[in-house]
Design a binder for these strands. Sequence first.
DNA 1: TGTAAACCGTAC
DNA 2: GACGTACGGTTTACAC
Length: 911
Amino acid sequence: MPTLTLIDGSSYLYRAFHALPPLTNAHGEPTGALFGIVNMLRTTMKAGSDYVAFVCDAPGRTFRDDLYAEYKANRPSMPDDLRAQVEPMMKIVGALGFPILCVPGVEADDVIGTLARQASAAGIDTVISTGDKDFAQLVGGDIILINTMTNTTMDTDGVIAKFGVRPGQIVDYLTLVGDSIDNVPGVEKCGPKTAAKWLAEYADLDALIAHADKIGGKIGENLRAAIPRLPLSRELVTIRTDVPLELGPKDLAMRPRDVEALRELYARYDFKAALKDLDNGTEPSAAASAPVAAVAAPATALVSPDVFSGPGEYEVVLTEDRLAAWLEKLETAPLIAFDTETTSIDAMLAEVVGVSLAVEAGKACYIPVAHDYPGAPAQLSREHVLGALKPVLEDPSRPKVGQHGKYDINVLSHYGIAVQGLAHDTMLESYIYNATATRHDMDSLAQRYLGYTTVKYEEICGKGAKQISFSQVDIETAGKYAAEDADITLRLHQALWPRLEAEPSLRAVYTDIEIPVVPVLAKMERTGVLIDANELRLQSQELGKRMLELQQKAYAAAGHEFNLDSPKQLQAVLFDELGLPAKVKTPTGQPSTNEEALEALADSHELPRLVLDYRGLAKLRSTYTDKLAGIVNPRTGRVHTSYHQGAVATGRISSSDPNLQNIPVRTEEGRRIRQAFVAPPGWRIVAADYSQIELRIMAHLSGDEGLVRAFAEGGDVHRATAAEVFGVPPDEVTTNQRRAAKAINFGLMYGMSAFGLARQLGVDRGEASDYMARYFSRFAGVRAFMDATRDKAHQEGYVETLFGRRLYLENLKSRNQALRAGAERAAINAPMQGTAADIIKRAMLAVTRWMGERDDVRLLMQVHDELVFEVREDAVTEVKKVIEASMSGAAELSVPLQVEVGEGKNWDEAH
DNA sequence: TGTAAACCGTAC
DNA sequence: GACGTACGGTTTACAC
C-alpha cells in the first residue's frame, strides 16, 4: 500500500527546543531547535514515503478559541529564541522539498486528522509523526503514530497498553483528565488511572454521566460537579477530521530539493554533517527513494543520526575463547568503553555480576560472571575475568571511557583493581557541555543526544519491593541491557566529545579539572570518616529526653495533645484555636509556622518558643544523631558518603547518603555532632578552609579598588566595609554596623534587593536602600561588575567562571517576571560560587598530587570551601604547611587566598 | 506499599 | 515577588 507521513511540525519544534541545549551559530543566532528538526527530517526522508506533509499552525484564531475564551490561556508565549528559529525552519523544510501545510482558522491537529482520514478512505497507510498524546484518538486500521523523540511507534495495541483504553475512548479519556497546558478543564482529581478505570466500566462518557450518582466519595462529587463543563471540554480535545482543505493526500508528493538554498542554509546555521552529506551527494532525497513501509521505518534519531544508527550487535561472552577474542580487540582499541553490573547501587556494598565492553560503536559484549538463578548457564568465574581485565583497566596508557566512572572505579577497587586511565566520562562531558540540564544519567543522555530510548534498569529488575538482584536476571536479557550500556557510552562520547573540543575553555575545565577529580572523589568515598557511634547514640537519648519534656509543656500550653512535628496541626493550634496573628505566609498562602513566624509570636504566647526549642532538638536527632549512627559501615566502622559531580549547576560538588556538607556548626548544640567525627588512635583531624573565598573572588572579578584593598590589608573585611559605608574609622565601627555590612556583602553575592536586606536586618526599606546606595557609591566597581555580568548573561545566554566553566540561564528571557528575576540573580551568583568550586577542586588535585603514595595523610571530606583530612600525628606539622600552601596557591587572584588550618582529635576541635 | 508534594531546616 | 546552591526528615494525600 502507498504511504503518507504527516509531520506535526509545531510539536517537534517545541520539543526540539526544550530538549536541546541552547546552541547558537557563529552569528549568535539560536539554532538548537533547528538542529533537532533538520536531523529529524533528514532521517524521516531516509525512511521514505510516497506522500508527506509538514503541518504547522497558522497564526490567528481557530474555532477552539471561539468556543472557549480561556483555551490555551495558560500557555506561555513562544520564547524569543524559538521564534527566531521559525522562519529559517520553514526555509529549510521548503528547500528539502517537503510540502508545507499551514491552514488559517484550524489547528495543525485538525489538518492532520482530516488528511489521515482521507488517506485511510483512499487506501493509503498513514504515519503521524508527533510527540502529542492527543493523536492517540486517531489510531486504528491503517493509521499509526511514531514519536521520533522516544523511538516508539503506537498502534491500537500500543494505545491500549499506554492509556488503558481503546483509541475510540481516547477523546472521553482526555475529556475526563483535562489538559492544564491547553487549559481544558477535566474532572478535578481525576488522573489517567481513574479515567481508565471509569471507561473500562462504563465504556463511554455518556454512560458514565448517566451513572454518575453511582460513583462514591469525594471524586464522585467532583465528577457530578464537572458534568456541565464536560461537553465543551470534549469538543476542545476532539481532533476534527472534516475540515475543508484545498489539497488531498495525493497532492502531497515530495518536490525536488533546492540544493543551493540548502547549502547556504546549512552553512549559515553550521550544520556540518548535513553539509558534508550534501557535498558528497549522500544527502537523502525522498523523491528518489523507493517506497518503504513506513510502519517499519527505522527509529529516527533526534540528534546526530550520523553517530547513531540503531541497535548494535551484542554478544554474551561465556567461553574462554570468546573472552580471549575480546581481550585481543581491547589490545588495539584506541578507546575502551566499560561498565560493571552489580548487586547494589551502593558501590561500597556492590558485588560484580558482570562486565560489559565496547570498542567500536554498535559492537559490544557482556561478560556475566555471577548470574545465579535456576537454569543459569555456566559462566566464566569472576576471579578469572577480572584477573584477565586487570592489566588493561590498571594501565594509564590505555584510555577508557565510562558513564559515571567513579562508581565502577570503586566497585572494582573492592577486587583489588586500581583503575587508571579513565580518560573520559560521558556524564561529565554532558555536565560541562550544559550543566543546566539537570539530568546526566545515561538514559537521559541517550535520549537527548542520540534520540535513542535505552532499556531501563527497572524494566529488567523491577522496582520497590518486587525488585530483584541483577544476578537473578536472565543472562540473555541482561546481556542486551548491559552491552547496550557500554555501546551507548561509547556513542555518547563520540557525540559529545567533538562538541567539547570545539570550545577550548569547556574542554579545559573538563580535561584539567573534572576528569582528574574523579579518582580523588572515589578515594574519599572509599576512605570514609570515622564516627563515634556510641557518642551519637548517647546524644540521641539525651535529645529524646529533652524533647519529651518540651512536648509535655507544649501540650499544656496548647490545651491538648497534638503532633508537634506536623506544621499543619501546629498551624491549626496557633492560628485557629489560639487566634494568634499570622504574619508570615508560606508560598501557597498558608500561615507559616517557620522559625521567623514563631519568633515573631514568641512574645505573645509561650507555645511558639516551646515549638522552636523542640524543633531545634528534633532536627538534630532525626537528621544527624540517629541518622549518622545508623549509617556506619559495619565492615569499615566508618561513614562513606557519596559525592556527586554532576548535580550542582554552578560546579559545586554535592554529598548525600549521608550529606556531610550540612553538618551543624553555628550553635554549640549542633557542634557536638562534629565532635563525633573523630580521628583514629595515633591520628589527628586537620581541617582547612578558605576565608571569605567568594567575596575575594568578587573582589578579583570586579577589580573594585576598595574591596581589593580591604583584602590586601588583611584585616576584617566586614569591618572595613562597614567603615566605608558608614564613614567612620574601622576601630569605631559598632557591632550593628558590622552586622549590616556583613549582610550586604553576603546579600550582594546572591543578588539580594533592598527589600531582602531590610528583611534580613529588621530595618525599614528606606534605610536598607540607603545602605545599599552608600555601599555602591563606595564600591562602584562591584556595581559595574554586576551590571556587566547581567548584560553578558542576556547577550550570550550564559555566564562563566574564571576558569571558563559555563552556566546557561534558561529563564533569562522568560515573560514571567519572577522567573526572569530569579535567573538574573543566579547569573550574578554563579561566577562567584562556580569559581570557588573550581578553585577548591584545583586545590584537591594539588594536594592529592603532593600526597602521592604516602600513607600518613588521607583526604576525607570536601565542604565547598573546606577540606578535612586525617593525618598521622608525627606528620601533622609538615602536612598543615603543605595543605595551606596548596590551597592558597590553587589560583592566582588579585587578592590573597587566605586559608585557615586547624587540628584536633575531632572535626569540631579542628576548627 | 509506594510516591509526590508541602513544609521546614541544616550547610556553604 | 523580593537571597544563590544543595540534601533530607516528617507529614499528608493519594494511587496501587
